[in-house]
Design a protein around this nucleic acid. Structure first.
Length: 552
RNA sequence: CGGGACGUAGCGCAGCCUGGUUAGCGCGCCUGCUUUGGGAGCAGGAGGCCGGCGGUUCGAAUCCGCCCGUCCCGACCA
């Protein structure tokens, strides 16, 4: 088909929107793909919707390929279903009433509804079943952000599997994992499958698909040797070993006037910051606890929370002075009148720590000898940590979660009474899995991963149009002829027939980012050939109009 | 929900601190002429409850209070 730019609703912007941070946010708005209606609520304009539908179609094909069945479940959902599973109390859930006062919810996902339908499955002979739909999800997000990165309303492809048992679930899970890898590859984005937290979905296992990106809410940890990938929140990594100074038979006090930071202390003493330890005093349940991590590490508060088993807050100046007799920058574990929890990295070796006297530190302090800590994993994984598989360097990247798959087991089918009769005549609860993909996030990831200074560089598979034909003044007929040639070859063509200057049209073409640009201009009048330019490489060549179908 | 920033024309911004007549600039938009292979030039023009409400004042875009909205960091997050 041929779309004429002169008639399209395609408002491109010269400047970045003032409230945009993420590249995908800026470029999708500037390119006329999306517009914001309110916080977290976005309209897909004609071009944006074309991309969304192309992503959907790829997802659809890959799911259908292994026997998944597309259907459509309603958004408006009776609250009873959510009361049954207890998810009615999730804060993000939108609730509403009809005129008769009946309660409804706008689903976060459709587990309840799909389990409701699962009740119609009677026999093991009907299993397995895999159902999916593309449907609107609403979430009362506390903080939408980044254009399409976190929305309050969005379309999700959510799929659900029903199996007889664990083994069946494993297979359904595996099939999705394989299909997802194909989907992301076909969409032209890099995504890594990693172990993930199950969050509110519950269940026995879940895996994330993370697409590295300039902006995102997750952090992907990968090994340089390609044998390890994980979400930062659960990643394992070993700190690089410190250059320890000479061992000491016992701790030795040294004056460190004015040195309150790890940087300052290690520079002043001329030692590796990795051979120091820093102490974070916190108050949990009214008692003081000293959390100890290596000087170059950061304390992961989630991990400390887990280690403590209860909520905590940072200790205040006054509490610190009272308990340690020194201020925050000079405290340490030796002789401290508080419980000490030390990071695993501090098990071996001698470290420099605060002496609990202002402007004094202790050299050669050794866990187990000079103080008795409880050890726990407290440190945040960092760039350059050693891979738990091979010891290679770990690399951290900001990433977008583009897909997430869960083993739900019977968490939803049991409360909703979705059972079947097994081969032996016994009634069993259906074993479920759920599998989500966000097409809008794939769009965002595709832009994050494929753009340059001028604009978007769409992967061919999800581009709004295959070819962007720029018609320059005086050769309108030849431009239309070129567009028709391309159309005849099966390409979707955007024909820029607007009454604009060449520079403006070129700039818009670069911004919008179709893979091929065909320029029809003066030279065309001479020899009947047009300029064909590859958006990604910038390579340009002349092709006779009659031979254009060969380029697509 | 905690911290921060912002809200003035379709978009990007100045003006506000130090109140004072018709509220400015760039881009875009409309009309005409000239231009036309990388965001043209000239001339003319349209477009604003200065986020909302209340207060102070002779007078408020400007000062004060409350509210709403948007973005960023954190918390949270399928």
């Amino acid at each position: 088909m041929i779309a004429r730019a002169s008639q399209l609703f395609l408002p491109t912007l010269r400047d970045d929107p003032a409230d945009a941070e993420a590249v995908s946010h800026k470029l999708l708005v500037r390119g006329g793909f999306i517009r914001q209606v309110a916080g977290g609520l976005w309209t897909f304009m004609p071009l944006g919707w074309r991309v969304h539908r192309k992503v959907e179609q790829i997802v659809r094909e890959e799911l259908d390929a292994f026997g998944s069945q597309e259907m459509l479940m309603p958004v408006l959902t009776p609250a009873e279903l959510w009361e049954a599973t207890g998810r009615i109390s999730i804060p993000e859930l939108f609730r509403l009433k009809d005129r008769a006062g009946r309660d409804y919810v706008l689903p976060l996902t459709h587990e309840e509804t799909v389990a409701f339908h699962g009740r119609e499955i009677q026999s093991y002979k009907d299993l397995p079943q895999i159902w999916y739909h593309f449907q609107t999800k609403d979430r009362d997000e506390p903080r939408p952000r980044g254009g399409l990165l976190r929305l309050r309303e969005f379309i999700m492809k959510d799929a659900y599997s029903f199996d007889r048992d664990e083994a069946g679930l494993d297979q359904s899970f595996r099939k999705h994992s394989v299909a997802y890898a194909r989907i992301f590859e076909r969409c032209g984005i890099e995504a890594h499958e990693v172990a993930a937290e199950s969050g509110m979905m519950g269940g026995s296992g879940s895996r994330d698909f993370l697409a590295p990106s300039g902006s995102g809410e997750n952090t992907l940890v990968t090994c340089e040797n390609g044998d390890y990938a994980a979400d930062l929140e659960i990643a394992l990594g070993r700190p690089s070993p410190p250059d320890f100074p000479e061992e000491l038979a016992e701790p030795q006090a040294v004056e460190t006037p004015g040195q309150r930071t790890i940087e300052g202390v290690s520079q002043f003493l001329g030692i590796d910051p990795r051979a120091t330890a820093k102490a974070m005093p916190v108050v949990a349940d009214g008692r003081l606890v000293l959390a100890l991590v290596r000087g170059d590490d950061r304390l992961n508060e989630m991990k400390l929370l887990e280690a403590l088993g209860e909520d905590f807050r940072p200790a205040e100046q006054e509490e610190i002075r009272q308990a340690f007799g020194a201020s925050g920058g000079s405290i340490g574990p030796v002789g401290a009148s508080a419980e000490v929890i030390a990071d695993e990295a501090l098990r071996e070796g001698q470290y420099v720590v605060g002496a609990n006297r202002d402007d004094v530190h202790l050299r050669g302090v050794q866990a187990g000898r000079d103080y008795e800590p409880r050890f726990a994993d407290l440190r945040e994984i960092r760039e350059g940590d050693a891979c738990p598989e091979c010891g290679g360097h770990l690399h951290l990247q900001v990433a977008i979660e583009v897909g997430h798959i869960f083993k739900l087991e019977t968490q939803y089918s049991a409360p909703l009474g979705a059972t079947f009769l097994d081969e032996d005549g016994s009634e069993k609860v259906l074993v479920m899995g759920s599998y989500g993909i966000g097409p809008a996030r794939i769009m965002a990831a595709a832009v994050e991963q494929n753009h340059d200074e001028q604009g978007i560089v769409w992967p061919r598979s999800i581009t709004p149009y295959d070819v962007h034909v720029v018609a320059l003044p005086g050769v309108e007929e030849q431009a239309a002829a070129a567009a028709q040639e391309l159309d005849a070859a099966g390409a979707d063509v955007l024909l820029d027939d607007r009454d604009q200057r060449a520079g403006e049209k070129f700039a818009d073409a670069d911004l919008i980012g179709c893979p091929l640009r065909v320029t029809v201009g003066k030279k065309t009048l001479d020899d009947g050939a047009v300029d064909v330019r590859d958006r990604e490489s910038g390579e340009e060549g002349r092709v006779p109009i009659g031979e254009l179908r060969g380029v697509v």
